[in-house]
Amino acid sequence: MSSVINVRGLEKSYGSNKAVAGIDLSIQPGEIFALLGPNGAGKTTTVEILEGFRDRDRGEVSVLGVDPSVKGDAARTWRNRIGIVLQSTSDAGDLSVIETVSHFAKYYSNPRNVEEVIGAVGLAEKSTELIRTLSGGQRRRLDVALGIIGSPELLFLDEPTTGFDPEARRAFWALIDDLRKSGTTILLTTHYLDEAEALADRVAVINHGKIIEVATPELLGGRATSLATVSWHGPNGLQSERTDNPTALIRKLTETYKDEIPELTVKRASLEDIYLEMIGGADGHK
């Protein structure tokens, strides 16, 4: 029971379409766990079952030791311990930031300090502004503020930085990093591989309703041991060679060139390369 989220054999179909086809997951306390996958892979369905928004067909699911399909007062007690940041909300433009956050604080037994939360998401200066005057990135920060106001033990973050400019994304990542330090367990779904790499302790790649692999971002898809591409400027122009032992190749090159190897680069597969290969591989018959 030590896992925050525990899933065994989860299945869900819509008509004849098997959206989730047998998923196992185990997420540990304090972990930031990223769920990666293309659209229609079963990501959203899986997360919404975990959030208690959807029923499942088969399988065992426990979130903070509770079955998310729980109803009534037990559901309120359970929801009091989790926070959900949904993909897109565009409501309540006529309320200010602080009015909205203090209102949501009234739903929970042990809300965090309202000003502190607004400060933590970087909206202190916008506190008394109406929501409809906020930029997209600021609105997203407000969404996060509403997700964490109840001091959740577990936070669901659904594609939190879609539509952000690079600077806003960096700032957002720093915010998530702060949450990590406070010990909140986070289940993150994202389209962005750099985001998963920057934030996640572990990554699961999901496609066609199944988990293809679960690993740390460094080890995903055998990335650490995958072929490296060594390239340099040789007598006939730019040359490159794929090898599983780049050090040996460079040692050989140092003998040829004595001095500096011109324009030497060693490139490992990026997380994106690995990921595309993984989901492409699963799509291979097409």
Partner: peptide
Amino acid sequence: KRLRGTPM
């Protein structure tokens, strides 16, 4: 949907 995700 957001409200549904809270203890409200």
